[in-house]
């Protein structure tokens, strides 16, 4: 922000935010309210029979090992995917910004997985990552790296990493696109003067480019928080949370509790914790960004 004072004020501001509040209120606030309400009840998700049980669902939830694993996995997933996607996305965006021949095609290739339905990506990676006949392991064996030809999805040690790899494949193009459009907005003059100053590639990257795309990075971090908390399809299609509980995520946990185990109350309690985590992280992130911008 260039000025601390907003330029406009008054009751009309409410008109601008009203439409989104009305629609969100209709669906999301009701959903949140319902979920919070259910989380204090014992409910099988089907009939009208709801029994108030206070904090029992939360007590059971926090005592559940699977829930702890889910929390841990969500955290690892968030850190790894956001970090790698951002780094890789920025690097490719910078290279693409050179606008050499074919850059538009490259950009589309990186972005297509983001567009594709997760079901097809998961199906293909299940085939590629197969232990015995998958092309990944066949390739590794062919170049003599037999020891790397592990059971990507069937070994608790590697399954989470495999999900992260697939997620990076799916979403790196998105980070790349956001960075690319941010880079387009940076005038060439800045780089020209940097060059005249004798600044090398890495110095220019870290001293000029990275700070200038800071807004994009902070958007990506928030998207990463949201994305990792919402990740469901790719996990349930790739491993279903297994082997054992090794790749349980908060969403797969919520899903299993509600749909497979008919425990609507505990599922809702887990759902509420997702909302709280998201809110806390988003608030922290926004305040961090604001402070940084003030410091600039």
């Amino acid at each position: 922000m260039t000025g601390n004072r907003s330029v406009l004020s008054g009751w009309r501001a409410y008109l601008y935010v009203l439409p989104i509040l009305v629609l969100s209120g209709l669906f999301l606030y009701y959903c949140i309210g319902f979920t919070v309400y259910t989380s204090f009840h014992s409910w099988n998700g089907i009939d009208t029979d709801m029994k108030y049980i206070g904090f029992d669902n939360y007590i059971k939830l926090f005592d559940d090992k699977s829930y702890h694993i889910a929390l841990r996995n969500n955290l690892i997933f968030f850190v790894c995917t956001v970090g790698v996607q951002a780094a890789l996305g920025l690097m490719l965006a910078v290279l693409l910004r050179a606008r050499l021949k074919g850059h538009a095609i490259f950009r589309s290739v990186y972005f297509i997985p983001t567009i594709m339905a997760p079901i097809i990506i998961a199906a293909i990676f299940r085939i590629i990552m197969d232990t015995n006949f998958g092309s990944l392991n066949e390739g590794l064996r062919a170049i003599g790296l037999d020891f790397l030809a592990v059971s990507w999805l069937g070994d608790p040690k590697y399954a989470l990493m495999s999900i992260i790899i697939v997620n990076i494949f799916e979403w790196m193009g998105f980070s790349m696109t956001l960075y690319y459009s941010a880079l387009l907005a940076i005038p060439d003059e800045i780089y020209e003067s940097a060059k005249i100053d004798g600044s090398g590639f890495w110095r220019t990257l870290f001293k000029i480019t990275v700070p200038l795309v800071g807004g994009t990075t902070s958007t990506l971090v928030i998207l990463g928080i949201v994305g990792s908390l919402k990740t469901f399809d790719i996990v349930s299609l790739l491993t279903g949370g297994g082997p054992g509980r090794s790749t349980e995520f908060l969403t797969t946990y919520v899903y299993k509790k509600a749909i497979e185990e008919f425990n609507g109350g505990m599922s809702a309690a887990a759902g509420v914790t997702i909302l709280v985590i998201a809110l806390v992280l988003a608030v922290l992130q926004i305040q961090y960004t604001n402070r940084q911008q003030r410091d600039l």
Binding site: S24, L28, K230, F232, T251, Y255, A270, G271, A282
Partner: peptide, 9 residues
Amino acid sequence: ACLAIPATA
């Protein structure tokens, strides 16, 4: 706060 509501939940 509504950002991270997974539809499955």
